[in-house]
Design a protein around this nucleic acid. Sequence first.
RNA 1: GGCCCCAUCGUCUAGGGGUUAGGACAUUAGCUUUUCAAGCUAACGGCCGGGGUUCGAAUCCCCGUGGGGCUACCA
Length: 480
Amino acid sequence: MIRVRFAPSPTGDLHIGGARTALFNWLYARNQGGKFILRIEDTDRERSTLAANKAIFEGLEWLGLDWDEGPKVDGSYGPYFQTERLKIHQEHIQKLIEAGHAYYCFCTPEELEKKRQEAAARKEPPKYDETCRRLPPEKVKELLAQKVPYVIRFKLEPVGETIVDDKIRGKVVFKNEVLDDFVIMKSDGFPTYNFACVVDDHLMEISHVIRGDDHLSNTPRQILLYRAFGWPLPKFAHLPMILGKDKTRLSKRHGATSVIKYRDLGYLPEAVLNYIARLGWGYGDEEIFSREELIKKFSLKGVGKTSAVFDTDKLNWLNGKYIRKILPERLVDLCEPLLIEAYGDHDFEHLKKVVLAFHDRLVLIPDIVPLSKYFFKEVKEYDPQGIEKHFKSEHSRQILETLKEKLTQLESFTKDKIEPVFKELAAELNVKLGIVIHPCRLALTGALESPPMYDVIEVLGKAKVIARLEQALSFIPRLP
RNA sequence: GGCCCCAUCGUCUAGGGGUUAGGACAUUAGCUUUUCAAGCUAACGGCCGGGGUUCGAAUCCCCGUGGGGCUACCA
């Protein structure tokens, strides 16, 4: 049985990088018919917050990455919050101590920091000097009795090498002598990442550890722990990192990095999902993948080794693609609250027509607000360039005048009835259609660009159209 | 500093000894004679450098360079 997990630490929103890791795990599980497990690594008591927990669930849920076991979903391998597994971790730490694989260390952080600096000054690797590893048992007992704060360190034999057999990178060899006696339990009694991760992955029977590249260097330490326990190794797969424009690790400096922020900016979850799937993964020449296609086509073989730069332009393109694909009702649902917020309550049928007029031209959902302004607000001013081009020309006044008359006479105010009016007028004046349309567009919208003219006229409605033509007609004579 | 990973257009990627090095985003141009988008077409643009191996290297090997990661009582 394939069992994979996403194991974020709740110290902030779900980041793009984390979301991509979650996605690849989820895809692998779904593709292989395995289980996707969510485990919250909250052993950093200082930085973990409840709000961050919620934010992670929210991000995953928005992307539709459902987990088979984890918080809110029972499984038989719980608990899924690491801090609730404290007893389990402590028991395992005791086992290692008893087996002679771990020991108490009473060095203070200050002492360690000092030693590190000294080592750096001597240009030596800042390894732990094993002071406490050599403490006689009586001394240890004494210090424990005196309640001197301590951590537990893993007793690492600095000989031989540890090979990480990675599904993406192949065999990676680490000499054990470059490692040191790392801490497995902090002085607050909580396990460190490397320890808790190993114990939980084993107990939860995780078959594949798929995680970011930044953990590759941690893997030999973890493998040594598996060995000390006598446990079998899971398969490892280290994903390439996601970088910002400047090729450094993606962070707040690069703008929006939290998945939820992308929702708030007006991106569609399927667009974000599609985009991050293509970061580090490819499938021939294909670019657009539905969730189902992603599940069908995903494989670890398709995952590359090179880090990827997050490119907002391409995300935007995808978002536009997906917006054009979604059902009208959904687009209306997405736009309605934004329009109401900007322009107040409006008749739903009218609002619906406005939104659909822009279906082809949105990149981000909130684009609807500025684009549709003239459907909700009066036209207060005209584009200056437009005035020059379309209000000062030979026929502009006559055109608007005639349009007003002809449109006033129209019984039904629909596209198919509106179109002939323009065609006839252009023919009468012997000018191109644009000559008639441009001044009209400016008069009705104040702008140089809009959806197709007849659509705008129909949606605007007769009363507003006539009123705006009159407004323009009284404006033009006042022009210098 | 030590150790580890990585290197194809600006960006995401396909290709893994013999290809005109393919696609996508972005950019530029053209077409859509109602604008702007959308759509379509085209152009621009790349195998980090140096050594090998080979008849032949973007592809395999080594070195260099560049970028990233780890080296915490963070995960």
